[in-house]
């Protein structure tokens, strides 16, 4: 076989043949990408998650076009109006349009969610990779840090942080980044401990791959679904945290967020006043976003992880 091939490489016409063969091969690579994305078809829940999130993203981008009113525009003559043609989701006690507030609320929600997810994923993944791969003192030191982060209670920490800094969405992102990486780091590390003993990692060392290459090209992609999963949990956590903080009255009272909507609904005793639209709508928005984040995480995990599919 290889003899044939060596002589084949010498002659002109065969080089042409090789060229065409190589181009078919490149086409196949393009195919491979198409196949990689095909997971969405096989995983309808993941697709649903993506569609919901996409819708929320579009709403956030085109908020000024979609919203019929300024979200902060008051109309005391029309307070606590139930859903109608004029106000599709009703108004609050200051006569502000609920629908418009919801639409504008998607912006901070997504910003907080995505930024938190990215920072949690970034910090957690790298700490986990380095600790797991190098082991020894590096591992000990980093894991002490994780233990320390685990020792800090979540909600009180954020409340203290909000009290010290100003009550803004950045504080929440910062707090989540400072705390939630611990879980990602720990899970990633334990997977890395397992992965680094696999023959394919040994094989990479055998061909002379550097530590950096092994960590980022061989091990990292294999923990990425997990990072993604915890990242999507972080989206959910961040949005829920913003809501909780605002609801407890530690939020930025001037911001239009779903949490603030809930907070003012609670303060104005919307429930007692039968204004169900005021608190259910932001509740549903929060839930949808959180669920979509979760579905995407799950779908990704199930589909992009070939080992998980094997019995």
């Amino acid at each position: 076989m290889s003899d044939q091939n060596k002589t084949a490489l010498d002659s002109e016409s065969n080089v042409d043949a090789l060229d065409t063969e190589l181009s078919t091969w490149r086409e196949r690579q393009a195919d491979a990408w198409r196949r990689r994305l095909a997971f969405l078809k096989r995983e309808p829940m993941g697709l649903a998650g993506i569609l919901i999130l996409l819708a929320i993203v579009l709403v956030a981008i085109f908020a000024p076009v979609i919203a019929p009113y300024e979200p902060t525009e008051t109309d005391y003559g029309n307070s606590l109006a139930p859903p109608s043609a004029e106000h599709p989701l009703g108004t609050d006690s200051a006569g502000r349009d609920i629908f418009s507030q919801l639409v504008f609320g998607a912006r901070p929600a997504l910003q907080i969610g995505l930024l938190s997810a990215i920072s949690v994923a970034f910090v957690g993944m790298n700490v986990g990779l380095v600790a797991g791969y190098y082991g020894g003192y590096v591992d000990d030191a980093l894991m002490r840090l994780v233990d320390f982060a685990y020792g800090i209670p979540f909600t009180p920490f954020i409340i203290v942080l909000v009290a010290l800094w100003e009550p803004s969405k950045w504080t929440i992102v910062g707090a989540i980044a400072l705390l939630l990486w611990r879980q990602t780091a720990r899970v990633v590390r334990s997977h890395v401990l397992n992965l680094k003993e696999k023959p394919f990692v040994k094989s990479a060392r055998t061909v002379g791959a550097s530590d950096r290459r092994i960590i980022y090209r061989h091990i990292a992609p294999n923990v990425l679904p997990l990072v993604f999963l915890y990242g999507s949990f972080a989206i959910a956590w961040a949005i829920l945290t913003e809501a909780a903080i605002s609801y407890l009255g530690f939020g930025d009272p001037t911001a239009v967020t779903w949490g603030q909507m809930l907070q003012s609904a609670q303060q104005s005793q919307a429930l007692a006043r039968d204004a169900w639209w005021w608190f259910t709508m932001p509740g549903i928005a929060i839930m949808l976003t959180v669920i979509s984040a979760f579905l995407i995480g799950r779908g990704y995990e199930e589909q992009l992880n070939p080992e998980l599919q094997e019995p």
Binding site: K198, P199, F200, K202, S203, A204, T206, V207, H218, P221, N222, N305, P306, E307
Partner: peptide, 14 residues
């Protein structure tokens, strides 16, 4: 170079 025992674990699945 080296060829390993387990054909199911010696290739990177990704």
């Amino acid at each position: 170079q080296m060829i390993f025992q387990d054909p199911y674990e010696s290739l990177n699945p990704r």
